[in-house]
């Protein structure tokens, strides 16, 4: 009867969404609350996480066609994308370089563990890309996946509040920032905020994912030099 866990995921998420909707705090996030609920459940009771993972595989499958379906909001914004193509490409390229270079340079101050640094490198892109990049450069795919999920949650929770605080109110700018920094989890949040935010976040997710895969060997080479000095 482990498939009760599948139903439990749906029920807890829908309940969290319903109960938390009147609360305006970014921490009152149904995704975060549902995840914490299950993490608490498997940490503090004898219930077994592996059963939950097996039962919820259908949702992991559904993520793939859902990513393909992100073509829909993208297509609906095609006019705006064409108009702003240059600004989009410049902002996303800049974002990728900032995302990787700030993360690596700060981490270099704290550690000289090459495997850890290489696993942090792709932290801002969607987990399949991040895992592949970490694996190819010599990082740890599982550590990369864990960091990616944590970063995505962070962006989804605090991203929009931070952007508003910094007077970044243009919906397209908000979407690109979310997609570049918090990949698919950030994009899911952006879709809830608005169509334009969702579309531009999907776009940034794709562009920054591909650019990160392309630029990763260069940054990995840099990490190699810095850790051998």
């Amino acid at each position: 009867m482990i498939y009760l866990y599948l139903i439990a995921t749906v029920l807890i998420f829908l309940a969290a969404r319903k109960l938390l909707s009147p609360i305006k705090s970014p921490l009152a996030n149904p995704l975060l609350v549902s995840i914490l609920f299950f993490i608490g459940l498997f940490s503090f009771t004898p219930l077994i996480y592996q059963d939950y993972a097996t039962a919820n595989i259908p949702f992991i499958w559904l993520l793939e066609p859902a990513v393909v379906a992100l073509a829909i909001p993208l297509f609906c914004q095609i006019q705006q994308i064409k108009q702003q193509f240059k600004a989009i490409m410049v902002s996303c390229s800049f974002g990728v370089v900032i995302a990787i270079s700030t993360c690596i340079s700060i981490a270099l101050l704290l550690t000289d563990d090459k495997v850890l640094l290489l696993s942090l490198l792709p932290k801002s892109v969607t987990s399949p890309i991040a895992m592949a990049v970490a694996h190819e450069t010599g990082g740890l795919a599982s550590l990369a996946a864990a960091v990616v999920i944590a970063v995505g949650l962070l962006g989804a929770l605090g991203g929009f509040s931070l952007l508003k605080f910094c007077k970044i109110t243009n919906p397209q700018a908000q979407g690109l920032a979310m997609g570049c920094s918090a990949h698919a989890i950030g994009t899911a949040k952006a879709m809830e905020v608005g169509n334009e935010q969702g579309a531009f976040s999907s776009l940034a997710l794709v562009i920054s994912g591909i650019l990160t895969a392309v630029l990763a060997p260069f940054f990995a080479w840099f990490i190699g030099i810095m850790t051998t000095i």
Binding site: A99, A107, L110, V151, N170, A173, L176, A177, S181
Partner: peptide
């Protein structure tokens, strides 16, 4: 956790602000 949290949090904030700010100016 220390390295991961410090570098990811600062880097995510920097990325959010720089992308949003740059695009808002360019567009």
């Amino acid at each position: 956790w220390v390295t991961i949290v410090v570098s990811s949090v600062i880097s995510t904030i920097a990325t959010l602000i720089s992308v949003g700010w740059l695009y808002q100016r360019l567009s």
